[in-house]
């Protein structure tokens, strides 16, 4: 019997799906951690990115910070924070928030700052306040790019939440780490098929949401 057959058997076994350590509960955990991380990162990164984009200065700082954050290895932060703070949710969430900030920040900044200054000036000439310019002109135009950043961050977080199981948490990574610990390769494979499928499905959902949220006037763009 080869690995794929074993993997298939594992998937076909109803016991793999139910219960506290089953696929469904791991999936919910995985989505829960990812959602929490993205929420915190978005609350930090999106306003900053949008404001810097609106002011049209300080862009170099944003790009520099994002680049530095991108270079930070998440596994290193995770282990460092775990030694520092101990077991629990805090250490991995902190490490993953740092991972998610870079794409969200650059997306928000790039989206808003790329709005044609002529359009912004026209709005200003019509007597719109800065807040109105931001919410009625810049943000609607910037939606596709900002959303691109959100999609990117979501994919990275979904992929990386797997390593939270390296400490003591759940999520789909649990199957990978537990499978590795007892040399059960088929379970590792199953875990990664699930993670890949989740990423593909979520990306498709987000792509759909992006279409719905974008102003029809922008949809001609590639």
């Amino acid at each position: 019997m080869n690995v794929l057959e074993q993997t298939w058997k594992w998937f076909a076994d109803p016991a793999s799906w139910t219960g506290a350590g089953g696929i469904w509960s791991r999936l919910v955990e995985h989505l829960g951690y990812s959602g929490l991380v993205l929420l915190i990162a978005a609350v930090i990164a999106l306003p900053v990115g949008v404001l810097v984009g609106h002011r049209r200065s300080g862009g170099n700082v944003v790009v520099g910070v994002a680049g530095a954050l991108r270079a930070l290895p998440t596994l290193g932060l995770l282990t460092l924070f775990a030694l520092w703070i101990g077991l629990g949710l805090t250490a991995p969430v902190l490490a993953l928030v740092l991972l998610a900030i870079a794409p969200l920040l650059t997306g928000a900044y790039a989206g808003v700052s790329a709005v044609d200054p002529v359009v912004v000036d026209a709005a200003r000439a019509q007597g719109l306040t800065e807040w109105q310019i931001l919410t009625r002109v810049e943000l609607p135009v910037a939606v596709p790019v900002i959303f691109g950043g959100i999609r990117n961050a979501t994919l990275q977080v979904i992929a990386t939440v797997t390593i939270m199981a390296y400490i003591d948490l759940g999520g789909l990574g649990r199957f990978l780490i537990d499978g590795l610990a007892v040399r059960d390769y088929s379970r590792m494979v199953a875990s990664m098929i699930l993670a890949a499928a989740l990423a593909l499905v979520l990306d498709a959902v987000l792509a759909g949401a992006q279409k719905l949220l974008s102003s029809p006037g922008l949809s001609k763009e590639d």
Partner: peptide
């Protein structure tokens, strides 16, 4: 689409295709 697949997933799945050690 290829980029959507998590890297760790590829690290684990590739030995199946390549016949390499994990």
């Amino acid at each position: 689409l290829l980029y959507t697949v998590p890297s760790l997933a590829l690290f684990v799945l590739l030995p199946l295709i390549l016949g390499t050690s994990i």
